[in-house]
């Protein structure tokens, strides 16, 4: 089993994500510079957080159109897992891997703090180790993280159980007050229709060790590993 963490110019969570995968979860992981492309097959590709291309034009817009993203899209289409975290989520949505988009926060400032998330789906390859409705505490750090999608798309996400996480309060209530950036229906984790791509604004890699104050995020990586162990690579996921 082998994971790839893609590094773009301006990625800044690449090494944190690598550390959690390699040292905390113990999975073989390659840091892959975007110019190299995906030169071998991987079980999972992680698009890490950061400010690829300085967020020029729109966060994620330019990175989404690099040649390595064509490789990532091919990997996803053949059933490989893709996890986009923060800037990686913006890149994944700009590349069309998940529906909708992440844009300027409703109050247009950078927000960096811990938030609560409610687990909405426990059958995806990224969330099987959580309990339905479980509330986890994970940090966010973004200015362009407000999830936007047409109403019919949001309805479809709900119907198909493509919402992985919603912002909530500490008791699991998805209130307007617990929605830090104005995301549609508090959504901040979106799955692709086939379920093998997850785009999420919160940073699970910053909540994967006790020393960091929360280990709630590590189950995302461990769910991916368990899924690959159980199903092998590139099996249908839903």
């Amino acid at each position: 089993m082998r994971f790839a963490v893609v590094q773009f110019g301006g990625s800044n969570c690449d090494r944190d994500t690598y550390h959690v995968l390699a040292d905390v979860c113990g999975v073989d992981t390659d840091l892959v510079w975007y110019k190299e492309g995906l030169t071998r097959s991987y079980d999972a590709v992680v698009l890490p957080g950061g400010f690829s291309y300085g967020d020029y034009l729109r966060a994620g817009a330019i990175a989404a159109r690099t040649t390595i993203m064509s490789d990532v899209v091919r990997h996803a289409k053949s059933g490989g897992l893709v996890l986009g975290i923060c800037n990686g989520a913006q890149i994944a949505s700009e590349a069309g891997l998940v529906p909708g988009t992440f844009t300027l926060n409703a109050y247009p400032k950078f927000i960096s703090r811990h938030v609560y998330l409610r687990i909405e789906n426990t059958t995806s390859p990224f969330t099987t180790l959580y309990r339905e409705g479980e509330v986890i505490r994970v940090p966010i750090a973004h200015k362009e993280g407000r999830y936007v999608a047409p109403e019919d798309v949001v309805a479809r996400l709900n119907r198909n159980r493509q919402v992985a996480f919603r912002f909530c309060d500490q008791h699991g209530n998805t209130t307007p007050e617990s929605n830090p950036n104005g995301s549609a229906e508090n959504i901040t984790g979106v799955l692709s229709e086939a379920g093998n791509v997850l785009a999420m604004m919160p940073h699970p890699e910053r909540a994967s060790e006790r020393v960091l104050g929360s280990e709630d995020g590590v189950k995302i990586f461990n769910s991916m590993i368990a899924h690959i162990e159980e199903h092998g690579r590139r099996r249908p996921t839903r």
Binding site: R58, I62, R65, E94, T101, T103, V148, A149, P150
Partner: peptide, 9 residues
């Protein structure tokens, strides 16, 4: 279509 505009917004 290819870059400048995001059709969602």
């Amino acid at each position: 279509e290819r870059l400048l505009a995001n059709p969602v917004i």
